[in-house]
Amino acid sequence: MKFITTNFVKCAIKGCQSSTEAFPLKYEDCQLAQEEQEYNPEFIAHMLERLNWPAIIQVAKDLGNESLPPTKPESLDPIMEDDQAVLRDLHTLLLETQIVEGRMICRNCEHVYHIKNSIPNFLLPPHLC
C-alpha cells in the first residue's frame, strides 16, 4: 500500500461515514519498504493539489516522519531547479514508500484493519456490514 493511498481510504463502516474522525486512519506497527516507481514530476505536482495535506502530515507522523512542512508546498514547477528536489522527495514519500505490513485503526470507532503483503483489507465482519 503506497503512502499516497492513505489519502484516499477511511473506515468502511457505515456509521463512520459522516465522522471527521474516520479519516485518515491511524497507522500502527507498520513495516515500510522503499520500492522504486517511475518518476513523473508532473504527476506529483498536479496530484499534490488534490491531496489533503493535514492527512498526509498525520499519517507521516504515525509512520515516524515528522519532517514535513506544516503547509502544503504550492505550485511546484518541474522546470524550476529549486522545486525539483521537493518533487523528488514527495515522489519518494508518496509513491515509493510502501506499507508492507501493519494495522489501520479508525479514530472514531476503533475498528482495526490489517495490511498484509502490501494489501490493505477493508472487509468487515458480518455484524458490521
Binding site: 516507481q37 494489501i119 490493505p120 483489507n121 468487515l124
Partner: peptide, 8 residues
C-alpha cells in the same frame, strides 16, 4: 505499482 485494497 497499482493502488489496491480488498473491500466490499
Amino acid at each position: 505499482a497499482y493502488n489496491l485494497g480488498v473491500a466490499d
